[in-house]
């Protein structure tokens, strides 16, 4: 966990520097604007520029991450004293299984739309990870998309993306609108 603490704090420090640099960018319509011309508190009598808020906050975040590193070096914070593993083997497996499942779920939405992706994601999680019976799995993974369709598409008029499955829904629209 000691290593993880240092790596994370360093990453946050680097992110802060990137954000400071990014905050200094001029407006998009003016390519000639100088970087960091927009971080003052009163520019041309028109108050603080667009970079004022994010720049100084990023600078403060940078200092805070240095403090975390200082606490790490002097072993003042709990993670910097702990000898536990950051994520044990079991935890890593979980992250790959569940996190990976979520990534696949979102990726599938682009192709199969929400309803197809929900169906497959639930089969994966309930049947393969949860080890429930196939009957229960099918019941859940059919019921949830059907409920969502009626709740969002029909009742709330929030049309969820359908991807390549769109033609299948046209007759449903015909019936319900």
């Amino acid at each position: 966990m000691r290593l993880a603490e240092l790596v994370t704090a360093t990453a946050i420090a680097l992110l802060s520097v990137y954000l400071m640099w990014k905050s200094g960018e001029g407006p998009s319509w003016d390519p000639t604007a100088q970087r960091f011309a927009n971080i003052g508190i009163n520019i041309d009598g028109r108050g603080p520029g667009s970079g004022f808020w994010p720049f100084w906050l990023s600078a403060a975040m940078f200092l805070a991450s240095l403090a975390v590193i200082f606490n790490w070096a002097t072993r003042r914070s709990r993670p910097s004293r702990s000898d536990d593993q950051y994520l044990d083997a079991e935890g890593k497996k979980m992250l790959v299984q569940v996190g990976g499942g979520l990534f696949a779920f979102l990726g599938l939405i682009h192709f199969l739309g929400y309803y197809g992706a929900i169906f497959l994601f639930l089969i994966y999680s309930v049947y393969y990870i949860g080890r429930h019976k196939l009957r229960l799995t099918l019941a859940v993974s059919v019921a949830v998309p059907v409920f969502c369709f009626f709740f969002f598409d029909i009742a709330m008029r929030i049309v969820l993306p359908k991807g390549y499955l769109e033609p299948l829904f046209l007759p449903l629209y015909e019936i319900f609108y």
């Binding site: 569940v98 979520l102 779920f105 979102l106 939405i109 929400y114 929900i118 994601f121 639930l122 999680s125 309930v126 990870i129 949860g130 080890r131 429930h132 229960l136 859940v140 949830v144 969502c148 969002f152 709330m156 929030i158 969820l160 993306p161």
Partner: peptide, 20 residues
């Protein structure tokens, strides 16, 4: 509900909810 069903449902609701 068994947690192995509740957890995926919460994920689905989060993903649908943000889009909605």
């Amino acid at each position: 509900m068994p947690f192995t069903i509740l957890a995926p449902l919460i994920f689905v609701l989060s993903v649908v909810g943000i889009y909605a």
